[in-house]
Design a protein around this nucleic acid. Sequence first.
DNA 1: TCAAGCTCGTTGAAGATTCAACTTCATGCG
DNA 2: CGCATGAAGTTGAATCTTCAACGAGCTTGA
Lengths: 174, 174
Amino acid sequence: MASSTDRSTEPSVSDAVGDPVEPRWLDEDQQRSWRQYLEGTARFVEALGHDHDVHSAVSLGEYELLVRLSESPGRSVRMSVLADGLAQSRSRVTHTVHRMERRGLVRRTADADDRRGVHCVMTQQGYDLLVASAPAHVAAVRRLMVDVLTPEQLRVLGESMAAISEVCKHDHVL
Amino acid sequence: MASSTDRSTEPSVSDAVGDPVEPRWLDEDQQRSWRQYLEGTARFVEALGHDHDVHSAVSLGEYELLVRLSESPGRSVRMSVLADGLAQSRSRVTHTVHRMERRGLVRRTADADDRRGVHCVMTQQGYDLLVASAPAHVAAVRRLMVDVLTPEQLRVLGESMAAISEVCKHDHVL
DNA sequence: TCAAGCTCGTTGAAGATTCAACTTCATGCG
DNA sequence: CGCATGAAGTTGAATCTTCAACGAGCTTGA
């Protein structure tokens, strides 16, 4: 073993003739790209989160949640829709919303049709906080990503991650 | 406020004539790419982590740490080098190594030259676990990313994230 | 109608991460 | 030398996330 996601010349572990047992290691280019993605994403999320700590009263995750609410009619979104949209577990959203509710940024209301349902509603205070946070957020996203890449790079990045997103969505069920 | 990182047609918040006060919102393409990145990465990390839960005795983070150790002469790396390489805080590495040490995957030894230094050394048990985990890890990275993209897409993804990584490295200091 | 099986959302405990404070040691400079 | 500064790691508390279990309500089909 010498490299993370490992070399194409790795000796067979199983010596099996069949294929499913013998992993297809990554070649050098694939390896490099994969590691660049991993490190880049780690540093990016870290830097953007840090920026929120400094310039904003909401974390990146809370900001994203507020954005979803702001885009929805009535500034109200069902918990399950929030969870799906943010690609987070229901439990996580429950906890986050609970904390934000304590701070007066959101409220929870019952769903009239489905009595299991709960809506998360943004308060005026939450809206004001979103508006106040937006400029620094956009500036950071620009500085750390959008303005760093060429339009072409940014486009490919988005398309690639969208494709991965689809695969992961289905994979996750398995 | 209608969209996350916000629309180019957003009315001015400050109405100022100058530039630093007026944020440059993202245009539609930029916005889409940014969101695709955010959602794709969330789902990808989630799916890959889940895969480790199922197929491996180490989490993704622990796996990455073991990989670094396996690549280093003597299977030994200084804590600070680990932290830098993994783009994690020193504190986080300390805690992770502590947990892995309890499980017998690594040991800690003093640095001979710098008496502040501590080396993290992989045990045979840690190495065996890495070898056992590698095939499933590679398979998942392929299934969820490498095999999903064209070689060209993967290359651009890597290059883009490397550029972002550099910017974040310097930005983080500020 | 009723039961089985699903979705929705919550809960609390366990686990992981962050943050600030602290100890120890190295280094540079007057 | 002697002090200031800063780097390396650790610690413990606060915070956040995950996980499994649960209560409640919808839905389907016999």
